[in-house]
Amino acid sequence: MTYIDYEVADKIATITLNRPERANAQNGALLDELDAAWMRAAADPEVVVIVLRAEGKHFSSGHDLKSGEPVPEKITLELIYQNESRRYLEYSLRWRNIPKPSIAAVQGRCISGGLLLCWPCDLIVAADDAQFSDPVVLMGIGGVEYHGHTWELGPRKAKEILFTGRPVTAVEAEQVGMVNKVVPRDELDDETMKLARHIASMPPFGLRQAKRAVNQTLDVQGFYAAIQSVFDIHQTGHGNALSVSGYPVLARLDEMKAKIT
């Protein structure tokens, strides 16, 4: 793998985003490698817990809109829909539903597409410098593809961060229940692995059933249907962009990522 590191020890699979020079921005190859790592951990009978972490100052600056990857001569909404439904919706839902507990360790900035990586995890441990944001309203889009905002933050806080584009601090995220624990930055990995080892000592089948019970309850409340529905709302943003300024929408992109170094 080029952008992802993978290792297993003590019944814990650790998946590491390793593109720090780009603040772990997500191009297609990174996401495909990441999905392969998740599937590898899911299939390994020796793995009880999955940890997702990132190298560098920031967890992820989101989708890499300046990746330099080949762009089709003609961009259509159908092409956008096909790509995003696979890499941004199906991947995130698949990671969410893997029948093993997962923990995301988040530091620095977690912007837009970065949320699609940590929100599917069952638990989130955040460094005290972590900030979570989705400023894509600046791009004429109502939020990222896996629209977990309302479920993760509650309706009014979700609207606030979408309307303003401002980041949610680790402390705020813990207060609303999006984050399980906030720790000093230099203790993030140790505290995450301590939690992972504790969970890994529990009976795997019991963990699987507990996860299914909670996820199924959310789905009965409408989570799955809402995620699917709002993904289609997201696509209307792309449709508008295609008619106004072309794709991708790069307006104010530099402003969005000005603080990512």
Rank of each mutant, 00 (worst) to 15 (best):
M1S: 12
M1D: 04
Y3P: 01
I4V: 12
V8Q: 04
D10L: 08
A13P: 04
N18W: 06
E21K: 11
E21H: 07
R22E: 01
N24W: 06
N24K: 03
Q26K: 06
Q26V: 14
G28V: 00
A29I: 14
D32I: 09
D32F: 07
L34A: 03
A42S: 15
A43H: 04
V51K: 08
G56T: 03
H63D: 07
L65A: 09
E69S: 08
P70V: 01
P72S: 11
L79T: 01
I80Y: 02
N83E: 14
E84N: 06
E84C: 11
E90M: 14
S92P: 10
L93A: 05
R96S: 10
K100N: 07
P101Q: 11
P101Y: 11
S102N: 09
P120Q: 09
I124E: 06
V125E: 10
A126R: 04
L138C: 00
I141F: 07
G148V: 07
W151E: 06
L153R: 13
T164Y: 01
R166D: 12
P167K: 07
A170V: 07
A170D: 08
A173T: 06
V176L: 09
M178P: 02
N180S: 10
V182C: 07
R197Q: 15
I199T: 06
L207N: 09
R212A: 10
A213P: 01
A213W: 02
V214A: 15
Q216W: 05
L218M: 13
Q221Y: 14
F223N: 02
A226K: 13
Q228N: 11
Q228M: 11
Q235S: 02
T236E: 12
G237K: 00
N240Y: 12
A241L: 03
L242N: 02
V244C: 00
Y247D: 12
P248A: 13
L250Y: 06
L250D: 10
A251I: 07
D254C: 08
M256E: 15
A258D: 11
A258W: 11
I260W: 15
T261M: 09
